Amino acid sequence: MQVPLYQAKAEFFRMLGHPVRIRVLELLQNGPVPVRDLLSEIDIEPSSLSQQLAVLRRSGIVVSIRDGSTVSYALAGGDVAELLRAARRILTELLVGQSELLAELRQADV
């Protein structure tokens, strides 16, 4: 039995629902990044980063690239970067709306 599309989408967003995974994807938007650089940008233990990279790799969102002893990660496709940009636009609109509401509430207190 095939999984309904809405359920597959929910699973996809659930997989993205971890701050470290989102940060990794943000860092990979401009091209491959060595694991050591990811570690220096994200303040977590190497084993935790490895676990989150494995989740992203199993989902097919990132790929690993080995060059000698250096392992780098890259986005498997450009659509993920576009999704992150869309999320940024949506969050910006939400926050602008909230700040406008806050200003109205403050004005009503006067």
Rank of each mutant, 00 (worst) to 15 (best):
E82H: 01
L56R: 04
L102V: 11
P4R: 10
A87D: 14
Q107A: 12
G60A: 04
L101H: 13
V35T: 06
S59D: 09
E100D: 09
L16Y: 08
R58S: 14
D79Y: 08
Q51V: 10
R21K: 14
Q7E: 00
I42E: 06
V62I: 03
S72W: 00
Q51A: 11
I61D: 04
G77S: 13
V80D: 00
V33T: 01
E11N: 10
S40D: 09
L84G: 00
V33L: 02
A108H: 12
R14F: 14
A10T: 04
M1W: 10
P46R: 06
R57A: 04
L38P: 11
E11R: 15
E26Y: 11
A81I: 01
E45T: 10
D109H: 12
D79F: 01
L16S: 12
D37H: 07
L84C: 01
A10D: 12
L25E: 02
I90D: 10
L25H: 01
A108P: 08
Q7K: 15
R66I: 12
R88F: 07
N30T: 05
G97V: 08
Y73A: 08
Q107V: 12
E104T: 10
R88Q: 13
R58E: 10
I61F: 01
I90L: 14
I90M: 07
Q2P: 14
L101T: 13
V3D: 09
L27I: 05
A10F: 07
G77Q: 07
D79H: 08
V35Q: 12
E26H: 06
P32F: 00
R21P: 10
F13G: 06
V96T: 08
A54K: 15
D67E: 15
D67H: 13
A10E: 14
F13C: 06
I22T: 13
L28S: 01
L95P: 09
M15C: 11
V80W: 05
Q2E: 14
S69N: 15
V63C: 00
Y73I: 01
V55R: 15
A54H: 15
R88W: 08
G77L: 13
P34G: 04
P34W: 03
T70W: 09
R66N: 11
S47G: 14
S69A: 14
